[in-house]
């Protein structure tokens, strides 16, 4: 049986009248890559800050590795690595010195630390930049340095708070590959982002947050199965009559039909051969059409159906 790494129960955090986290519950098992997905202001960073005891909370409990997390829980903190949303490194120290400094806050053994720092440099592929000062690094390299500073002490739990914000696609892929590799090496990971593609790509479980609440949790497939929409079919064609729309709506699994900007949009619930049925109808009634797209639901659709708004609103 997997160990529970983090257990959050009924967490409530208020800023005067604003409820930032509203009775939030979460359990993270060892070896998970948990994606905390939600739009800006949904409470992701606040939750992370509460887990790290950087913020006090009004109600609820947080346990990390089976122990209550407090500001002075230094033994627990030793097992946690944090990669902040904003790059937090010393401008006056070079790449090596920065990683060594942050690693040294956890690891006192000099020899071991040296090894760990070298490992971290190799991991983020900054070997040829070790003497560079942060000012000389590009945005992507700076993000990699930021990650190296957070993971150099080989923590069991790594929290990455939107580490790919404002990063070029190449560096983003490197970072995502790195996170998966860290997980493969045994680290449990919490990954917050509002980029659903990233979360879907690397996370084993996803928690969707909105207005401080945990509105759904599960694997990407589990989340997609929670919603009615399982296939979205778009067909480029000339305007469709109301009668045809009504007829399409009667086809199996079709629950919504609309026409907008030269496209017929058909929403289907879970079922087989949806596209075949629709194309059959169009041919049968000699309705000419152009390109046809069939999309499976995304996490954005999940979020849209659950909250009535887009993830990136």
């Amino acid at each position: 049986m997997k160990k529970t790494v983090i257990k959050i129960e009924n967490l409530v955090k208020r800023y005067k009248d604003l409820i930032a986290i509203d009775h939030f519950n979460l359990q993270i098992e060892e070896g998970d890559i948990l994606g905390l997905l939600g739009p800006n202001g949904s409470g992701k960073t606040t939750t992370i800050n509460c887990i790290l005891s950087l913020l006090s909370f009004d109600k609820g409990s947080i346990e990390v590795f089976g122990q209550t997390m407090r500001p002075d829980s230094y033994d627990l903190k030793r097992q946690i690595g944090i990669v902040m949303q904003n790059v937090a490194v010393f401008e006056s120290l070079n790449v090596y010195e920065n990683i060594d400094y942050f690693c040294g806050l956890y690891i006192t053994d000099k020899k071991l630390r040296k090894q760990y720092v070298e490992d971290a440099i190799a991991f983020v592929e900054l070997d040829s930049f070790r003497k560079f000062y942060p000012k000389k690094l590009s945005g992507g390299l700076l993000r990699r340095l930021n990650i190296a500073c957070g993971i150099a002490h080989k923590p069991k739990l790594i929290i990455l708070d939107e580490p790919t914000v404002a990063v070029d696609p190449q560096s983003r892929n490197k970072i995502l590959e790195g996170i998966v590799e860290l997980n493969r090496q045994g680290a449990t990971i919490i990954y917050t982002s509002h980029y659903m593609e990233e979360v879907e790509q690397i996370c084993t479980r996803i928690a969707i947050m909105d207005c401080g609440k945990n509105i759904a949790i599960g694997t990407a497939d589990e989340l997609k199965k929670m919603i009615k929409n399982s296939e979205k079919i778009s067909i480029e064609m000339t305007p469709v009559s109301e009668a045809d729309k009504k007829n399409i709506l009667t086809l199996p699994h079709v629950y919504d039909v609309s026409y907008d900007h030269g496209q017929l949009l058909v929403q289907c619930s879970a079922g087989r051969h949806n596209l075949v049925h629709i194309l059959g109808y169009l041919q049968q009634h000699e309705l000419s059409f152009g390109r046809v797209y069939s999309e499976l639901p995304t996490l954005n659709d999940v979020f849209l159906e659950m909250t009535g708004k887009e993830l990136r609103d």
Binding site: P71, N86, F90, Y106
Partner: peptide, 14 residues
């Protein structure tokens, strides 16, 4: 603030 926050997360006491 960002550095201070990161340092506060470490296992070195305040």
């Amino acid at each position: 603030p960002n550095l201070s926050k990161r340092i506060s997360c470490s296992s070195t006491s305040a």
